[in-house]
Amino acid sequence: MKYFIVYLTGVLLISTCIIASVVSNSNDSLVLLTKTLDAIEFAVDFFHQEHPNLNLDAVIGTRMVEGQFKVLLRKLKFHPSKRIPAPTIARIERLQKVAGLVSEEALPYIATFTPQYYNEIGPIIQEGFWEMDYPSRDFDPDVKIWQYKEGESLMEQKSDDCLAEFFGTGKKSKKQCRISDDCWNFMTAPGYSSYSLSHQVFYLEIGRQFGCHAQMLLKNLAKHQKPINSLQELFCKNMANEAIIIAKNGFPQRKQDLFMEQAALCGILGYREFFTSNWLEPILSWQDELYGCYRGELVFASEVKLRDGVNIRRKREERPLDHGCLCHRTTVALAALGQYVRYITEYIQLESTVPQ
């Protein structure tokens, strides 16, 4: 696999032969960066035009781009590189601002049309929430990969109810960070796959970012679990294994939404194994050439089977927009592509420090 090798805050000693396996030279990586920024700009412009029709999940994507680009721009300022052209940096800054503008424009419509949902988990689409800054890293080779199984392990309503416990907006308690044993057990259990697994990663990210880390740590210790960082690595490594399966199967359309969501959520945590040119090119190819959105089968409007055979219908149904465009698929594409910008940029910076 061709990795976008990145730099950490310190100096990493990485062989020239590994770097050469990513792209042939800095011009190639700059071309990939430009293509990725083109795709992001196209999708953000589409959301800008459609902002009265966006749902809450769509704005998670624009907030991710806004927050993650802010983090990236701070790093570029602290570690300037002549290999990244000034116009490219200016473009990243402009896209960060436009993503923030789209988010702000959509908020009043979301609050009006889905007030209960907005009141329950609205904090995750507020400005600044997604300015997470995790170091780039590889998976520990000793982390366990469990046997992949099709099907979901939890209902989406359960995931939302557990998120509401962080915010104090649930039905049982109005106090923030009051985590029930029931939720903690569900959201940290091993062996999940598909969206159930991505919701676990999402859950841990949200809790830590919202300020519930101390309460999460108490639950973690009481249950005699591995540290929370290790749980996140365990979940993301299994998500990476599932992404590999999706890629080997030729990126079936019904799995494309999940594939991009996996890269977005674990990319924010710093896991770079999700980011390869062999995976970027398909994501770019799925974008609608006329409108800039992402289209496809209505995965969220279809029935989903729990592993016990029970049919459920996902609560947050995908919202179709004009021209067959899909809200959720477009937003996970935005979030994933935003992470590709991070890793390509970091690779270019690292490349400039390695002897030629």
Rank of each mutant, 00 (worst) to 15 (best):
P85A: 00
M64Y: 08
P85T: 06
V71T: 06
A86H: 13
F69T: 05
T62A: 07
P85L: 00
K77R: 14
A86W: 09
A58Y: 09
F69H: 07
R74F: 02
P87K: 09
L76G: 06
V71N: 06
M64D: 08
I84D: 05
P85F: 00
T62L: 08
K82G: 12
Q68G: 09
L73K: 05
V65E: 03
G67E: 02
L56C: 07
R83P: 02
H79G: 04
R74Y: 05
F78M: 12
D57V: 14
P85H: 02
I60P: 08
D57M: 13
M64H: 11
R63F: 03
P80A: 01
I60W: 11
R83C: 09
G67K: 05
L76P: 00
P87D: 04
I60H: 09
F69G: 01
V59D: 00
I84T: 07
V71Q: 07
K75S: 09
K75E: 15
P87V: 00
K82A: 14
E66K: 11
R74L: 07
V71G: 01
L72M: 04
K70G: 11
K77E: 14
I60Q: 12
R83F: 12
M64R: 14
L72K: 04
P85V: 00
A58H: 12
L72Y: 00
D57Y: 14
S81E: 03
L56N: 10
L73E: 04
P80W: 05
V71H: 06
T62S: 11
P85Y: 00
F69Q: 03
H79V: 13
E66G: 07
I60A: 07
R63Q: 15
V71P: 01
I60L: 13
H79I: 13
G61N: 07
F78W: 08
F69E: 01
A86N: 12
K82Y: 09
M64T: 11
M64W: 11
F69L: 06
V65M: 08
E66L: 06
S81P: 08
L56G: 05
R83H: 14
D57Q: 14
A86L: 13
P87S: 05
E66A: 08
S81Y: 04
V65G: 02
K77I: 01
G61D: 04
V59N: 01
L56Q: 13
K70F: 07
F69V: 01
T62Q: 07
K77S: 11
L73N: 05
K70Y: 08
K77T: 08
H79A: 11
P85K: 04
T62M: 07
E66M: 10
A86M: 13
K70V: 01
L76D: 04
K82H: 14
L56S: 08
P80H: 03
A58T: 15
F78Q: 15
R63L: 06
L56P: 09
R83K: 15
P85I: 00
L76I: 09
L72N: 02
G61F: 02
G61C: 11
M64F: 10
Q68C: 07
F78N: 12
V59I: 15
R74E: 11
S81C: 04
Q68N: 14
S81H: 05
L73D: 03
V65H: 06
L72T: 03
P80F: 05
P85G: 00
P87A: 03
K77Q: 13
D57C: 12
